[in-house]
Design a protein around this nucleic acid. Structure first.
Lengths: 214, 214
DNA sequence: TCGTGTTGGTTAGAAGCTATAACTTCGCGT
DNA sequence: ACGCGAAGTTATAGCTTCTAACCAACACGA
């Protein structure tokens, strides 16, 4: 999916089997969620028996971590491509929404219930910064607005933006975009709007419209 | 926890053992999340061996469902009491935030990753309507504002409010309150603000402040 | 007061899971 | 051509949920 020229044929085979394993893992997760993911069942699906799978993933947790990494990677690629195609915050919201609706469990692998002990490896948190960078770029493209108390607060707490040159109001807008979109989208994907027949896309539009001026 | 006068001593004992089981279940969930919840381990903790626990909960899923019900019940009681003590939307937000921070896994039992096949029993969804009713009451107490396109859309999709007499703008504000609060709170509780050192309470304040006028 | 039936508890065991150990077989590179 | 390492196998330990069968003890009506 990334580098086509895998070196030795041994490694090419290995990468292909790993991909196949992850493919079946995604199908199981989409069908019944992460808790129902069974290494045994996956092994049988790919045609090997049980413990052979441990040659490819050292443990169940390592497989899940790989899936989380791929999910982040997919999200980051999606928003970066949309942004480079000229999408603003409003369009980005719907791009992310479509991405989430295409595989809700993948969305929740990133933004769902956390596992108390778990800390994601550094390379994964690095990808989440990629996403935030795109949001900061898009938020910075909006017209400047007046400062609020929270903006002042952010001036003292902008380490998380690293070297991004956004001003405090832009940090605020990127944060609000993130939290408002996630607020609507995660409730939609989790089915909490089930009975209510309104269109979540319209709610998102207005949540972000009011973000433009405030 | 609810009705003190359990009838027969048999039923009193039964209710007390059920409560003790749930107590240990909450501790396990808080420590390692729902997937790590083990009926065997709980049984040993309460001093009985293995399958005896099935006299009190027919299955692991039924125990978890009971925990979900208690979580909803606790949330509904919390917001209703706060509202009856005169809390407005702004105060309600912090009441809910405190409730979530006191036991994040309990929050995620309601608003976290959904299980694909699972549908909550009717009595649980009824409790979620209790919460929504309080939000609608509090949202209706705010000064009236002009109508937006989404308000017009809501006029045709207000079945979920049942017989509550709120106008469309109030439905909209209750929805925005819910989604914005959940957006910030769930990301905070999941640790996605880990590196960033800003105060989520301030972000919530401003998210709801802009809701007052829009 | 004496059956009798429900309830709470036990141990045994089936089926499934993760994961490790020991062993064999295949294929790549020197 | 040969050897070594990678890939796969079976066996097994230890965990899980959950069912079956059995036993004890309490509650209640005759």
């Amino acid at each position: 999916m990334t580098d086509p020229a895998g070196q030795s044929p041994r490694e090419r085979y290995r990468a292909q089997v790993r991909a196949e394993i992850k493919q079946h893992a995604w199908e199981q997760i989409a069908a019944a969620g992460v808790p129902a993911l069974s290494l045994n069942a996956i092994a049988k699906q790919v045609g090997m028996s049980g413990p052979a799978l441990y040659r490819y993933f050292a443990s169940r947790d390592e497989l899940i971590t790989a899936l989380i990494r791929d999910a982040y990677r997919s999200l980051a690629d999606t928003v970066r491509e949309a942004r480079s195609s000229g999408a603003g915050l409003a369009e980005l919201a719907h791009v992310v929404r479509d991405w989430g609706r295409s595989d809700p469990q993948r969305y929740f692998l990133i933004y769902g219930t956390p596992v108390p002990g778990y800390h994601a490896p550094d390379d994964i948190t690095a990808i989440s910064f990629e996403v935030m960078t795109v949001l900061l770029d898009a938020a910075g493209a909006l017209p400047a607005v007046g400062s609020t108390p929270f903006d002042e607060h952010l001036k003292d707490h902008r380490e998380w933006a690293f070297d991004h040159p956004a001003d405090a109001a832009t940090l605020h807008r990127a944060l609000s975009f993130w939290t408002r979109l996630h607020g609507v989208l995660s409730l939609e994907l989790a089915g909490h709007f089930a009975g209510m027949k309104f269109d979540p896309a319209l709610l998102i539009d207005e949540e972000l419209e009011s973000l433009r001026q405030s």
